Amino acid sequence: MADSRSFRDALGRYPTGVAVVTAFLDGKALGMTVNSFASVSLDPPLVLWSIERSSERYGIFENATHWGVNVLAADQAELAHACALEADLAQCRTGWQGEIVPLIDGAVARFTCRAEAVHPGGDHDILLGRVIDLDTPRDVPALVFYRSGYCEPG
């Protein structure tokens, strides 16, 4: 097996979508940028994403009963970068709405999920959620992460 840098570089050759996973903690809208979001099942509607157990943001999601997945638009690369550095959505200068989870303005798809299960996966946990609501507010290209950079598909 190659070293971890080679492994990471090889994984970077697979383009992924970019999302901000969000939740409320103590009444505050918080989130983090991820590229590990994926569908699991249509019936029931299940999705997953993963988080490193040693992440300073792990505590936001480990006991959350609900979380949101906000698939970002190609014009939201600055927001993706901001949410990678800062958890507080107010500090990331983005608008959002929602009572169950924060749903980010301008996203191309937004999923409200009820936490279903957490599965260990190496140094990460895989969070499985049941989609209880969704919308697709914008019909524009999604943001893509490829070879350590943001881009538009195509």
Rank of each mutant, 00 (worst) to 15 (best):
W67T: 03
V71P: 07
N63E: 15
A74K: 04
Q97Y: 09
R57Q: 05
G95S: 05
D3W: 00
D43M: 10
S4N: 10
L128Q: 03
G106T: 02
A73T: 04
F37K: 12
F61I: 09
L30I: 14
L134N: 05
I132N: 04
A64G: 06
K28Q: 15
A38R: 11
P120E: 09
L30K: 01
T65L: 11
T16R: 11
L143G: 03
V101E: 06
L103N: 08
R114P: 03
S41Y: 13
A80V: 09
R130H: 06
F61T: 06
Y14P: 00
K28G: 02
V18E: 01
V144N: 01
G98D: 09
G17F: 11
Y14S: 12
A73L: 10
K28V: 15
Y58F: 14
A74F: 05
E152S: 15
L89I: 12
I51M: 15
D75W: 08
G17M: 13
I60S: 03
V47I: 14
A77I: 03
Q76A: 02
V21R: 03
G95A: 07
I51P: 00
T33S: 11
Q76I: 06
L25H: 13
F24K: 07
E78T: 12
V118T: 09
I104S: 02
R138V: 02
G31N: 01
S36N: 11
L79K: 00
L11I: 13
T112S: 12
N35P: 07
I60H: 02
